[in-house]
Design a protein around this nucleic acid. Structure first.
Lengths: 334, 334
DNA sequence: TTGTACGCGTTATCAA
DNA sequence: TTGATAACGCGTACAA
């Protein structure tokens, strides 16, 4: 034994037991408030815990009880506030139940997702939460073999592996088209970001086109940026679009970041919104409620999705698809 | 043994060993590429792993090797993109080294932080990262006793427990005041959010006041909202401020969310920026670069802070305070 | 109500 | 290059 070893002085359960003059299992029972013990013993144990500054080792606990209180969460990105909201909802609910979240960022890459799922599964989580319903075959196989709860978030357009909590992006896109058509717009375009990776954005777009068709319209033009969504891309995207198709009278942006960019472009160029150009985005970010004209958007219950997902897991609910819906928020730009 | 037990069929190391016709330690060595073994054995082991779909149990591994590859991260909030950026920086670096991040959200509450630190320490992380340098005495005690690396992020104004990576918020506030004064502003006010909880915001404010004093000025007025920062609060804050003090010619907002709200208020009310009112925020969010007039702000290297913090930990660097600085970004609003 | 002893799935030590 | 075997720290029957 090396006396310089930093971990040499870590207190263990048996140290506490010795200090309190009781058996190890007694300490274990007191600490987890499980089984029976006298009040007197409890006091002695707690005193020893306090005195020694004992911190239980959950690693050992998890091994012994075969089953961890860990929940693995994978999100495509953190630069989009939407996923941060999702995480908030999940962790807020989990924390109150002694559960711990371990997470990773996939960068919208299904291969990376697969690698990360493998890494996270090694921690034997009680549940794995991931965004969307598109996964590699390897991911699906591992997940199914893992024997833990699998919760897909934010999307319900597809076949759920176990539990899915979200809403239909196809329906959201379709509804958006209907609103634009109802508002009398006839020359409608789309400004979006990299859809190869953002499959939910792609679903909205396909729903949008379907919605236009149902209204007897076709997409007037589209500008798809080869980059992640951002305010800057939205701005540049609208600029490019209008240069090509100046007669456009409405634009659907792939999300609010993009829409904000478009809106700023209009402000800067003096383009009348919504008279000359209607704008609608997606997500209903707080900021869009406070621009000079509130930007029309689609409100998505992302925090609630996280919470409900965590609750379903905690309550050991049966496999299911939970549609939490969305709602169109009309603002001054439509 | 219950044959309905879901975890009954999980493959273990010894299953692989048996299938490959080798000893357990051999499998372990091959999998970790540690120690020596013949190419032939390696192939046999890997084949068995593949065939059985074996996923190593890191829980058991961590227990056996006393020392986990876990890094605990605590952030005050996730609704502010700044902390999401921080997380991105940290996890991106960690992932490439087989490390796993476990995280929790403190809601800017030091008591909650203490409880969460206790919970996270139970996982015996190799490092604990937390935002800021203000912690409860209990938190500090536990951390010191834990014998793991302690990394404080985003702030360097204070006494570091071990490693600190960030910049000086006091200096940032002071510099902001100097810029405003240099720009000829004389009636300068502050619009902020809940500073009891956001201690870094409070440091910026104190630095700002010091900076004004150095320029021979005093704060003309201040509007501090009793709520977390948001675009809405920034807007309402500026409205309240201007009603009270219409002669103000410059406003320092506690951060860019607040500043955006103020800027939108000006746009909506037709207040000339910067002619009549100069605006400067903090963080230099992407969106502020794309508003009709780019909003002046202070660029903070948050992703880099996360990366460097992770790198210092990975390289087993000595205790230190790393100042990554900040830079003032002048925009159209100053 | 309490303590003993075994097992959880690895890693590490050491001898072969 | 290999394979027993002893930890790792705790939960959990089971016995007391």
């Amino acid at each position: 034994m090396n006396f310089m070893d930093q971990k040499t002085n870590l207190i263990t359960l048996s140290d506490v037991a010795a200090a309190a003059g009781v058996g190890e299992s007694t300490v274990s029972r007191v600490l987890r408030n499980h089984g029976s013990f006298s009040e007197k013993t409890r006091a002695r144990v707690m005193a020893a815990v306090e005195r020694l500054g004992y911190v239980p080792n959950r690693i050992a606990g998890a091994l012994a009880s075969t089953g961890t209180p860990l929940v693995a969460i994978l999100v495509p990105s953190l630069s989009n506030i939407v996923f941060a909201d999702l995480l908030s909802g999940v962790t807020r609910t989990l924390e109150n139940h002694g559960r711990q979240a371990v997470f990773a960022v996939t960068d919208y890459d299904l291969d990376k997702e697969e690698a990360l799922v493998a890494a996270l599964l090694a921690w034997r989580p009680a549940a794995v939460m991931l965004v969307g319903m598109e996964h590699s075959e390897g991911t699906r196989r591992m997940l199914r073999a893992a024997g833990c709860r699998i919760i897909e978030l934010l999307d319900i357009d597809g076949d759920a592996l176990d539990i899915a909590v979200g809403f239909s992006h196809v329906a959201a896109g379709r509804e958006t088209a209907a609103r634009l058509a109802d508002a009398g717009r006839r020359s409608i375009a789309y400004v979006g970001h990299d859809l190869k990776r953002d499959t939910r954005g792609a679903k909205r777009f396909s729903g949008f086109c379907a919605g236009l068709a149902e209204a007897g319209l076709t997409l007037a033009d589209r500008e798809v940026r080869d980059a992640p969504s951002s305010v800057g891309e939205g701005k540049a995207g609208l600029a490019a679009l209008l240069e090509r198709s100046p007669a456009i009278d409405a634009v659907y942006f792939s999300n609010d970041d993009m829409a904000l960019g478009g809106y700023f472009y209009c402000l800067a160029k003096g383009i009348a919104v919504p008279d000359r150009l209607a704008i609608i985005g997606f997500n209903a970010l707080e900021i869009c409620r406070h621009t000079p004209q509130p930007i029309a958007s689609v409100l998505t219950p992302r925090i609630e999705i996280g919470q409900r997902a965590a609750e379903l897991f905690l309550s050991d609910a049966p496999s299911q698809v939970l549609d939490l819906g969305f709602s169109v928020v009309t603002g001054g730009t439509l």
